[in-house]
Amino acid sequence: MEAIRDTTLVRRTGVLPRRSGRRPSLRRATLDWAAHRFSASTAVVVAVLVIGIGAALLARSRPLLDVYSLRELLLGQVWLPSQGLFGFAPFIAGSLVVTAVAMAISVVPAILSGIYLAEYVTARTRTALKPVIDLLVGIPSVVYGLWGVLFIVPLVRDHLGPWADRTLGQSIPVFSRSNPSGYGLLAAGFVLAVMVFPLIVAVTEEVMRSVHREMRETLLSLGATRWETTKTIVRHAGLPGILAAIVLGFSRAFGETLAVMMTVGNVARMPRSIFDPAYPLPALIANNYGEMMSIPLYESALMSAALLLLVVVVVFNAGARLAVERLVRKGAA
């Protein structure tokens, strides 16, 4: 009781409480004060870091932003820095499409897997599988990239591409095989999907496991089947967390550089088919920073690309956070 009051006192006044009677010893009080201050300062550092990165990128982007309008930059489709043409549209489209392909492939199976791990398997199976999932999250992206080059690109080139060409591609342009190399949006999206999958599985599993045991027992006691129980838990308790899992997957996919760069083809053109090569923003920066810096505004353009990445991820996260809060209010209030 005493200790609790002291902590509040420190929080309110920021001074060490005077010692007396049953108050905690000076050592305990000091430690408590220091722990509070230390955790507060680290939280501030994190916030400052994000703002600092944003500010630095903005400052370095200014030369480009002063010359061209935002509209020219975002909608321009031609990227010829040597002629002073900085159209970001192909890169933005590349990033969005490759992420969309990855999410379209991975989200549903990953969420179902996470739910399965949380609700259906025995504790022993879960203990065996969880380290594998965590390991998959931790594999370096260059390894995924190599695997993509060795297996996925040939798969797309020799099987998926020709198959699409014979079937869907005839009538639907998005599936037409425009590029026989195999390197392109589909291959990169597939590699990304495999990278994002374990992340969404892990978070979904965690979310589902954190739901009150009582809720599960209540639903089962009412004679609900396993699946009805799971469905109700997802709809009424798990949705915000699962949305957070998807956002995490999106952010990871949107910012992934190496594995995408190795498989996407890197051609700065507006993609028209999922077999087209593309050039996502992270690949643009990684491939070009440090080269051709003699071209005026080139560095500034790459910084703008980085700023754009940061803004999209921040906006997407904030939007998702808002959506989650609205969901929570609707569900629990």
Binding site: E214, E217, T218, A332
Partner: peptide, 13 residues
Amino acid sequence: IGLLAQKPFPLPM
């Protein structure tokens, strides 16, 4: 066989 638990647990709905 229905169960009324120790602590009331209203479903979040």
